[in-house]
Nucleic acid binder design. Structure first.
Length: 585
RNA sequence: GGACUGGUAGUUCAGCUGGUUAGAAUGCUUCCCUGUCACGGAAGAGGUCGCGGGUUCGAAUCCCGUCCAGUCCGCCA
């Protein structure tokens, strides 16, 4: 070993020892006679001292070192005369008597400090330098801890980690596949898995009744701050279980992670139906750190000759506590915000519940005071509160109300970074009717089982397209602070029902056989009842570690917005020769 | 596919209602400094103002196009 210790471990207890340290020169402070050097490695920073009075030659040598030089220093651990209590090693320093340059370094293009001066693009291009910074480095080390906690939990509960292939078969339904050309079967392609879904189900058929995998998945869709083309899932499946068993088991996993990584004891996760989530929060992943629930106002605002509301499918609102003092300017700004194409509301109505008890609304012309009061009662609004109202087509308005709720939550500082509110959203719809393609789509995926009471509909009712009856699924999501971190379902394990599902989804017999024959065949050989869940590992990490929904700084080498790796400059063209070999030319 | 924001020194940004020599901070180089820890002080180098076109006597600044980056909508079962 070139070193006896790391830069993070020496303290006052080590005074008197002779040590060798290796690391990168983080910063040098030269006093023209003596020089201090902060030596950095993964574990921390230790100060080296060079004094011209005691060792002139070494001092001159140290002066020549540049930032990020890799050096090896040997010397005595000494107590400092001026201590720095801000860092763990701040009570000691190394009086160096031997210095070795292991490698020189060009001056890095940005400063490698906790708060770097580098922009995103540059940091991504030199990601290996960015990873030297404490914040990103710690994210990755914490991510490792999350992974360890997961494996620990699964191992203790009898789950087996089994690998599944990456070169698989393209399937219809779901996200766009990444595709790999086959050299040996020219003109044919493998697909990279969007998730190991079918494999884990086949493992259940094989009898591995508790399976998990921390595994890469690939989806060729547009990206976001919280979405990468390749991302990691904690993929899990269990046999001989009902929904309740799955919920219990994986709630336990999330709790175990928070305990191990953040030393937090989370309370039992509340359950909320999808229907209620949409009704009260306008999304299927409610941020329950604050209330401000959506109230439907159809029964109290219709019939007042206010055309906007009389014509609207849904009128709903939220009550922002203590915002009655909002100025015209602030309200105009909010109105502008809800009218942005991304939100798409027609306008914004409001009622101010003034501190003197009077009510002032944006539609006073049509509503008398008692009518306004009636609306205010819906929210249990108090003096000083502001009620914000949106109206329009039902789905769009609910969504917009959900967005407005989050925006007000942000403005009022109700989305507390130090809090974690986890919940299960249950009873998701099984299918969604797609107007454009005039067919049903699986909301979760086509292997999700319908609720018992909807099985008959699967055979006899599904042709009544977009009927008022929406079949429900044994499907569930874990939501933390408004972020969907995982989702799963109890699967179909019966061949006939699975075939029927494909039929409902509009696949022909031939397509079904060609694309999914393997799993239907497997179901003929004793498939056990089973179900599972998959967690977005990157998202879970970013939430657990920093309570944020931006995953790039939790991935060592992420891709940018357009799916490019700016460090490698990939994707890139390939040789004509390669193309020819693959039958692409 | 769409909306919005940004692109100026190595870096982060200011300048942008058109007008002498495009600034600041930081980093870098040199010098001074023996207890700093974001050390301090002095001097210096460093710019195709993303790219192309247009308007104008004159464009970093206005207009059009284009590329790149970021956030969001669509999309992501």
């Amino acid at each position: 070993m070139l070193r006896t210790n790391t830069c993070g471990e020496l303290t006052i207890k080590n005074v008197g020892q002779i040590v060798s340290l290796c690391g990168w020169l983080a910063r040098a402070r030269d006093f023209g006679g003596m020089t201090f050097i902060d030596l950095r490695d993964r574990y921390g920073i230790t100060q080296l001292v060079f004094n011209s009075e005691t060792n002139k030659e070494l001092y001159e040598q140290a002066k020549k070192l540049g930032r990020e030089f890799v050096i090896r220093a040997t010397g005595d651990v000494c107590e400092r005369s001026n201590k720095n209590l801000k860092i763990p090693s701040g009570e000691i320093e190394i009086i160096v008597n031997k210095l070795e340059i292991l490698n020189e370094s060009k001056t890095p293009p940005f400063t490698i400090e906790d708060e770097s001066d580098g922009g995103d693009e540059l940091r991504m291009k030199y990601r290996y330098l960015d990873l030297r910074r404490t914040s990103v480095k710690n994210n990755l080390l914490q991510r490792h801890k999350v992974g360890q906690a997961v494996r620990e939990y699964f191992d203790a509960n009898g789950f087996a980690d089994i690998e599944t292939p990456f070169l698989i078969k393209s399937t219809p339904e779901g996200a766009r596949d990444f595709v790999v050309p086959s050299r040996m079967s020219q003109g044919e392609f493998y697909a990279l898995p969007q998730s190991p879904q079918t494999f884990k189900q086949l493992l259940m058929v094989s009898g591995f009744d508790r399976y998990y995998q921390i595994v890469r998945c690939f989806r060729d869709e547009d990206l976001r701050a919280d979405r990468q083309p390749e991302f990691t899932q904690i993929d899990c499946e269990m046999s001989f279980v009902e929904q309740e068993d799955v919920l219990q088991m994986f709630e336990g996993m999330v709790k175990h992670i928070f305990k191990k990584v953040r030393n937090l004891d989370l309370p039992k996760f509340p359950r909320m139906t999808y229907a209620n989530a949409m009704k009260y929060y306008g999304v299927d992943k409610p941020d329950t750190r604050f209330e401000m629930k959506i109230s439907e106002l159809n029964d109290v605002v219709k019939g007042k000759n206010f055309k906007v509301y009389d014509d609207a499918e849904l009128i709903g609102g939220i009550c922002a506590k203590g915002c009655a003092e909002y100025t015209r300017k602030q309200l105009d700004k909010l109105t502008e915000w809800v009218k942005r194409p991304q939100i798409g509301a027609g306008g914004l109505g409001y009622i101010k519940y003034n501190s003197d008890g009077t009510l002032k609304s944006s539609f006073d012309k049509f509503f008398d005071e008692p009518s306004l009061k009636k609306i205010a009662e819906k929210f249990s609004a108090k003096q000083g509160d502001l009620i914000l109202i949106l109206a329009g087509a039902e789905t769009k308005t609910r969504k917009a109300l959900g967005e407005l709720r989050l925006e007000m939550g942000n403005k009022l500082g109700l989305r507390d970074k130090s809090r974690f509110e986890c919940l299960w959203v249950v009873d998701f719809p099984l299918l969604e009717w797609n107007e454009e393609e005039q067919r049903w789509f699986a909301m979760h995926h086509p292997f999700t089982s319908p609720k018992k009471e909807d099985i008959d509909w699967m055979y006899n009712g599904y042709t009544e397209k977009n009927s008022s009856h929406a079949p429900k699924a044994n499907a569930y999501d874990v939501v933390i602070n408004g972020v969907e971190v995982g989702g799963g379902s109890i699967r179909i394990h019966n061949k006939e029902l699975q075939q029927q599902m494909f039929k409902v989804l509009g696949l022909t017999k031939e397509e079904t056989e060609q694309k999914f024959g393997f799993i239907l065949n497997a179901f003929e050989f004793g498939a056990p009842p089973h179900g599972g869940i998959a967690f977005g590992f990157d998202r879970l990490c970013s939430m657990v570690i920093s309570n944020e929904d931006y995953i790039r700084d939790y991935i060592a080498f992420p891709k940018n917005n357009s799916g490019r790796d700016v460090m490698l400059d990939s994707p890139s063209p390939i040789d004509e020769k390669q193309k020819k070999e693959l039958g692409l030319k």
